[in-house]
């Protein structure tokens, strides 16, 4: 779904403040990455939403196939031994 005649689409990620992850907030159109960062600043940080911006050309995002969600993600659901509550230890040990 490339937008031949239009401007490329960019996905915008904003970090609310240092110490947090950049989070996807939406998208916008811009001719290149410099303009995309500036547009992201003007569009998505008007209310002090963040202190850092990432933009990624939407065309460069690769995603998992929703049709394969079951084989991708369901196998993790019965691996209870990955979680601390799986293991019994005497109460006297206290927090571990």
């Amino acid at each position: 779904m490339t937008n031949e005649s239009g401007m490329p689409l960019w996905e915008v990620f904003i970090r609310p403040r240092a110490g947090l992850h950049h989070k996807h907030v939406g998208s916008l159109h811009a001719s290149d990455s410099t303009m995309a960062v500036q547009a992201a600043r003007d569009v998505y940080t008007r209310r002090e939403e963040g202190d850092s911006i990432w933009v990624v050309a939407s065309a460069d995002i690769h995603a998992s196939d929703p049709a394969r969600s079951a084989e991708n993600f369901d196998p993790a659901s019965d691996k209870v031994y990955r979680h601390p509550s799986f293991y019994d230890i005497p109460d006297e040990v206290g927090h571990m």
Binding site: M7, L28, H29, A30, M35, Q38, A39, D42, V43, R46
Partner: peptide, 11 residues
Amino acid sequence: PMLEEDLSMPN
């Protein structure tokens, strides 16, 4: 000229 600038100009 484009929607993104409709936000930049007022800023």
